[in-house]
Nucleic acid binder design. Structure first.
Lengths: 263, 263
DNA sequence: CAGTGTGAACCGATTCACAGCG
DNA sequence: CGCTGTGAATCGGTTCACACTG
């Protein structure tokens, strides 16, 4: 977006591909499980299966971190847990604030997965005065008036936004102004931030929509062969979408075909 | 990945790239907002900004759907809303079940974004008998004994798993056996499913870890200019030095880091 | 002539396949 | 011999730049 140019050029040497970074937490989770079962070593094949990727990819990923394996043997679980943790910066403590303590915010506050990694929920913040003081996940909700102070006092650099969409941009701006440089956004809206601030977004309904797309196609596959031909014809601009090679069948136990859009 | 094999070979005409599919919901959201403001047309530039992508990508994406724009003018908002909705399969009704009504499950049940798209929460299911009958989001929680019947009765093909990690695989198997073919998994575990079943996963802590990685690097950047030089030198076996955020060491002969492991 | 639609160049990520090493 | 580590091939996605059109 306009925010463009985060300019990732710098320091080329530090080149761990983004796609690899995104998988490190996955490996870490699998390794942690192995570690808990006191498994001493794993092969790339085993670990890959546990993490849900293929082994070539895993080996390539690890090769960006260094040569941490032993040929003919595999990887030392504990050692790798440490290396990946360090690489991800999880050996240090990251205080985070969660803004917007509705259902989702509360779920996040209670989510064990944060604490178990290096994350510490430093504060729960909500704009509703009625929420103030109410305990959520064993911690009192604080009013958003306190936001700047909390961030500054705790040295928070990561903020989680779980507010309604309408409030998100404003909250974002306050967070950034107060010193936050990484934001995890659950609000279904595009945040604009200055350069140097990272935003990751999770949109629950987007995931479902992607599933629906594939689901729809699966349904269509039953009548696929002919649909294919229809699809070709469909390419016309015919405003009155009579065509629609996209069979909207829903298979299902009761196998009924819902109305296919009045068009 | 394991889920492989849906085999999307032929039907060249219907080939919408996965990356494009993943952005369609984003466009749809931006378009819906425009539609609500009664904006009749948008240019690729405007819409791209609203959706948080660049315009070339947007135009390319749309070109996979067909030629729905008007040169020199832009895109008709309403028309595009309809086309994208149809492409995503949102013009039909998708009953979904949510399994695991803890904090997160409740948040999902209450999440407006589902209903506003084509999704209808057909049932909330939990294994805890104490939950049974309790109303969440205006709907009684049902016991998991009912799972198979519910799915079958409602023709559910999409399931959402919001259980603890330990229960997820089993729930998944029951869903699949009962006829579900798309799963959105919030449990921090890798699900294995038979061919033909789609799984998408959302892991809240993974997103935070990715942010932490970048955050860490930002911190290092303050001393970056010199770090860059150091990085060059680093190519060497180098001393097993500081845990200065940088350092992608080739593991030296043994060069084992003194286990500073946080146990 | 503004703005879409798209071939072609580019770039990053994945996969292959095997050399290298314990 | 088994398994890692990695160059080379491949693939998919993004970006560029411009021909084309309403």
């Amino acid at each position: 977006m306009a925010t463009g140019r985060t300019h990732r050029p710098a320091t080329r040497s530090r080149g761990i591909p983004e796609a690899t970074v995104a998988r490190l937490p996955l490996y870490l989770r699998a390794l942690t499980a192995l570690s808990e079962r006191s498994v001493p070593t794993v092969s790339s094949e085993e670990l890959a299966t546990a993490a849900g990727v293929n082994s070539a990819k895993l080996r390539k990923d690890f090769s960006y971190l260094g040569s941490y394996g032993t040929r003919g043997v595999g990887y030392d679980v504990e050692y790798l847990v440490y290396q990946i943790s360090r690489e991800l910066g999880l050996t240090q403590d990251w205080p985070v604030v969660i803004v917007g303590i509705g259902n989702l915010g509360a779920a996040l506050a209670n989510y064990g997965g944060f604490a178990s990694r290096g994350f510490r929920v430093a504060a729960l913040i909500d704009a509703d005065p009625a929420m103030a003081g109410k305990p959520v996940a064993g911690m009192p909700v604080q009013h958003s008036d306190e936001l700047e102070r909390i961030i500054s006092d705790n040295g928070v650099s990561i903020g989680v936004i779980a507010t309604p969409a309408g409030a998100a941009q404003q909250v974002c701006e306050r967070l950034v102004a107060a010193g936050v440089t990484s934001i995890l956004n659950f609000a279904p809206t595009v945040l604009s931030v200055p350069d140097g601030v990272d935003v990751r977004k999770v949109d629950l309904s987007i995931e479902l929509q992607i599933l629906a797309f594939h689901e729809q196609r699966k349904a269509g596959e039953e009548a696929a062969t002919e649909a294919a031909l229809a699809a070709a014809a469909e390419r016309e601009g015919s405003t009155d979408g009579a065509a629609d090679g996209t069979a909207a069948h829903r298979k299902g136990p009761d196998g009924d075909v819902p109305a296919v859009m009045p068009a």
